[in-house]
Design a protein around this nucleic acid. Structure first.
Length: 675
DNA sequence: GAGCACTGC
């Protein structure tokens, strides 16, 4: 590292030294020296994310002045749950250390590696470190790993916990720092028995918490009234209201605006909002007009808005839930946890003392869960199990996780992977499974891609996969534009299904040279399309690594779309529904079949007897979304082991399946006689 | 005939 620093360096250094975490620098370094694992609890504003990794780096460089593994430099890695955070924090730290980003300080996130052979401190997403661990389970280049925001308990962070717990045993020279914003620390301390804990206070202004006297029946009504009340009786200061979803937010914005008019500036905030609209949130307010931001959970952790003095918290958010029996993931409006409520309240005290209006009673608050359930307890684990297998975990039940998932969920995941050919009878990873694990996709999709050359359509399947991996590309404005949007969409529609429609959109986007105006005119989300192109490129790179053929059927051939539909089924054969005589679709499964409805966004002009679907969503009804027509006999051709009639309970679909099986047997016998 | 909390590889 260079010896002379710029004036700016010393200027920033003085500011850094005022951060609360600096008071604990010596204590931290001493503890790190004497222990393999250190737990640090630092509240918002303590400076832990930027400073601790620098402290660690200083120690590593002092103790290992020259050598690293294979002549390379030792690395300090710091994980973040979000890519924006990894990028922005590393930029900040590079500035503090007076170096160019990508040199001594860098970051690695999906689609972007801004690090080099010079890099000694690297910020990366938790998912990225997990990927690195797949290639090198001992994480040989790292000397210290810092797991930041551990309290968020993302799936990737939880897996890293389990993995590092093993790695630390085989690599006594590797150290781990766990950083958490809340004191769920006892949970971590139980997990890593006897680990020292350092507590650093945050720097937030006091936030007064107000509860309602009675529980509120209608939280929207209550939220709107509270905003009006704040506006009429509280001193200047911006307001942040937490709601659960896009429609609710847009609706509430309109209602507030109609009541308060020009006196306030009401703005919505959610992830699918265009970046330009999101940016508006950060425009400074004029003194005369109060800013009112109505937001989803995105403002709880991902985005920080300065100048918020009042927070309105109805106490709900949409949360993902997984039911292993029906294999359905659903988004459900649910009460938040105490930790979440406290995090929301903290948003009021970033620039001056604030107030948080909780639209529930103090008693209700005390009845809330302390922490939000870890993601691993609320997810389909097929992909997780595949990752663990790839990391060399032999017995999943013995893998030490902070919160072990339900046995049902685990069993379901193993079962799915077995049917996909990723695991053998003894639960070992197969060659196919190994390849599947390299794709940053769900197992069905990875399988579909791997076998697509057999249907001579890997190019098309890659495009469809990319489209399925990004947010919905169809824009549908409320009110006026709706009809025009639907008409534009119908231009892309393929009568046999939504997957093929997505393919049409992708092809059209490329034909129009990825033109943004073309997207605008056709009600297509440009950002989604660009990111699909990006995803596809990444998938192509993985394909070439495994030398999987890139090929297309003849576009003018009658079988062009047939091949693609067959390839879809080769991955998603466990997600098939059959049209019953009642006119309803029934999922066709070994157990727990469900009545489902085609999602109204589908582009089919008729109801085919059999469909393959991309996802099952539980909202106002049971919907299957993104569906494509398939032939019943393909089930027997493409997944004969899974579609043995004996595996299924009696049903209309089973009788049809039996007929197909019989026909297949007969044709096989006939062909035997010929030879 | 309806919706899309949020991340991430």
């Amino acid at each position: 590292m260079k010896k002379t620093y710029s004036g700016r360096y010393f200027e920033i250094l003085e500011k850094r030294k005022n951060l609360p975490v600096w008071v604990h620098k010596e204590e931290f370094l001493k503890t790190l020296k004497e222990n393999q694992i250190v737990l640090l609890v630092g509240e918002t504003g303590s400076g832990k994310t930027t400073q601790i990794p620098q402290f660690v780096l200083e120690a590593v460089l002092n103790e290992n002045p020259s050598s690293g593994p294979k002549g390379k430099k030792w690395l300090v890695g710091c994980t973040q749950p979000r890519r924006v955070a990894a990028m922005s924090v590393s930029r900040r730290v590079a500035e503090e250390m007076d170096v160019e980003i990508g040199d001594e300080v860098g970051y690695t996130v999906r689609f972007e590696d801004c690090s080099s052979s010079k890099t000694v401190l690297k910020y990366l997403t938790d998912g990225m470190l997990l990927r690195e661990a797949m290639a090198d389970p001992l994480l040989g280049r790292y000397k210290v790993i810092v797991l930041d925001e551990a309290h968020e308990r993302t799936l990737a962070t939880d897996l890293l916990f389990g993995l590092l717990k093993q790695t630390l045993v085989s690599r006594p020279d590797l150290k781990l720092v766990v950083m958490s914003a809340t004191l769920e620390a006892d949970k971590f301390q139980n997990y890593f028995t006897g680990v020292p804990l350092i507590k650093v206070p945050g720097r937030l202004y006091p936030v007064e918490i107000l509860y309602t006297r009675e529980p509120q029946r209608d939280y929207l009504e209550a939220a709107i009234n509270t905003v009006i009340q704040i506006h009429e009786s509280e001193p200047p200061g911006d307001v942040l209201v937490f709601l659960t979803g896009e429609e609710e937010i847009e609706d509430t914005c309109r209602r507030i605006a109609s009541k308060l008019g020009d006196q306030v500036n009401v703005m919505p905030l959610y992830s699918t909002l265009s970046p330009a609209m999101q940016q508006k949130i950060f425009d400074p307010t004029t003194d005369a007009v109060r800013k009112i931001v109505v937001s989803t959970n995105i403002a709880e952790t991902s985005l920080t808005i300065d100048g918020i003095v009042y927070v309105v918290d109805p106490g709900f958010s949409k949360q993902k839930l997984y039911h292993p029996n029906t294999r359905v993931e659903s988004l459900l409006v649910s009460p938040i946890s105490q930790a979440s409520a406290d995090q929301r309240a903290g948003r009021a005290g970033r620039t001056q003392p604030g107030k948080c209006f909780r639209l529930y009673t103090e008693k209700s608050f005390k009845e809330l869960e302390k922490q939000t359930y870890a993601e691993i307890l609320r997810s389909n684990l097929a992909n997780t199990v595949l990752t663990l297998k790839r990391l060399g975990v032999e017995n999943l039940l013995h893998f030490d996780l902070i919160d072990p998932p339900a046995p049902d969920t685990l069993a379901r995941a193993l079962d799915d992977l077995y049917h996909l050919g990723a695991l053998d009878d003894e639960c070992n990873l197969t060659k196919t499974g190994e390849m599947m694990s390299e794709f940053p996709l769900d197992p069905q999709m990875a399988k579909m891609i791997i076998v697509s050359p057999q249907f001579n359509c890997s190019n098309e399947i890659l495009s469809v996969s990319a489209m399925l991996s990004v947010p919905n590309c169809f824009i549908r404005p409320r009110g006026e534009g709706q009809k025009a949007a639907d008409k534009a969409k119908s231009m892309f529609s393929h009568i046999d299904g939504d997957h093929l429609t997505l393919l049409n959109v992708f092809h059209a986007f490329l034909q129009h040279n990825q033109n943004q105006d073309w997207c605008y005119e056709n009600f297509i989300n440009y950002r989604a399309m660009k990111s699909a192109v990006n995803v596809r490129e990444q998938l192509v790179r993985i394909m070439s690594r495994f030398q999987i053929k890139l090929c297309s059927p003849d576009f003018n051939s009658r079988d062009y779309y047939v091949n693609i539909r067959k390839a879809l089924l080769a991955g998603y054969f466990m997600q098939v529904a059959h049209l019953e005589r009642t006119g309803n679709y029934l999922t066709f499964r070994d157990k727990d079949d469900q009545v489902v409805h085609l999602h109204p966004s589908n582009c089919l002009e008729y109801k085919p007897e059999w469909v393959v679907y991309n996802e099952y969503v539980l909202t106002s009804r049971n919907f299957i979304r993104t569906v494509t027509y398939i032939q019943g006999e393909w089930l027997v051709d493409i997944a004969p082991d899974y579609y043995k009639p004996a595996n299924f309970p009696n049903s209309e679909a089973k009788r049809v399946l039996q007929r197909h099986c019989k026909k297949r047997r007969l044709s096989e016998e006939r062909s035997c006689k010929i030879f």
